[in-house]
Design a protein around this nucleic acid. Structure first.
Length: 255
DNA sequence: ATGGCTTGAGTGTCAAGA
């Protein structure tokens, strides 16, 4: 089973890239972030023609998350229960017996900003909910744009980024708390090339110079981590014309 | 040099991203 996550930075703009990537990689499920549309603008038909069902938790202009899958998604859930949030950042479903939780974790803007406090509150609510969700679904994968670079090796210039947004102690501590729930970073289950990133700034030729951060992740509960055979960042779509600033992350699980 | 680009909204130019 192949599962993946990709922040597409507008699904309307990126649909051709998504369709090409689905055809090339044939994932069983793909989690999307930043669809930036309501259901009325969501390309259900084009995805169905490509063989994918879609569930969406969308909003106008900002945020928006979706799960595409080749088989029927079950037990669909939108938003974190018991956490009042106007922003559409979570959708979950069970696909082929695996609980997929797709998240677009808040950016936070800057350490100390109001949006940063929201990010930390949001992460707390996520952890509280996931503790229950993992108990209910032992085979769980948490996929998405975390907006957290977990370690210095996930940052192109750790000195420049030290203590900054995406790298602050509180954000990294929140990431490590997810590990305490039994979730493991699929990417780090394997040897990986140095300077592996999943996001590069559009400005200053960030991708060409590989000035990036690894902020998109697939975390797996114990039973799924045992089944994980590969995990990689596919940088190919980042090279295309009009790319998303994020690249997809893909994990393969043994049956 | 706190910018650089890209998107959505909407027709001016800004907010937001990370």
């Amino acid at each position: 089973m192949k599962i993946a996550t990709w922040n597409v930075n507008s699904l309307k703009v990126r649909l051709p890239h998504v369709l090409d990537w689905l055809a090339a990689q044939q994932p069983d499920a793909l989690c999307l972030q930043e669809t930036k549309t309501e259901d009325t603008g969501f390309p259900f038909d084009a995805l169905a023609a490509a063989g994918y069902r879609a569930i969406h938790n969308g909003q106008k202009t900002y945020n928006g998350v979706a799960i595409l899958s080749r088989s029927e998604p079950e037990d669909v859930l939108r938003d974190i229960p018991a956490f009042a949030d106007a922003q559409k950042r979570v959708i979950a479903a069970t696909v082929k017996g695996v609980r997929l939780v797709c998240v677009y974790i808040p950016n936070g803007q800057a350490v100390g900003a109001e949006k940063y406090e929201y990010k930390l509150r949001w992460l707390n609510a996520l952890q509280d909910w996931l503790a229950d969700e993992i108990a209910r679904h032992p085979r769980l994968a948490l996929l998405g744009d975390y907006n957290i670079a977990p370690e210095d090796r996930d940052v192109h210039d750790p000195v420049a980024w030290q203590g900054q947004i995406l790298c602050s102690d509180a954000e990294r501590a929140a990431f490590r708390k997810l590990a305490c729930l039994g979730l493991r970073d699929a990417f780090r289950l394997f040897d990986q090339p140095e300077k592996s990133f999943s996001w590069w700034d559009y400005r200053a030729a960030g991708f060409r110079r590989n000035l990036g951060l690894r902020i998109d992740h697939i975390l797996l509960s114990g039973p799924l981590a045992e089944r994980c055979r590969t995990c990689l960042v596919d940088t190919a779509p980042r090279r295309l014309e009009r790319p998303s600033d994020h690249a997809p992350v893909l994990a393969e699980l043994a049956d």
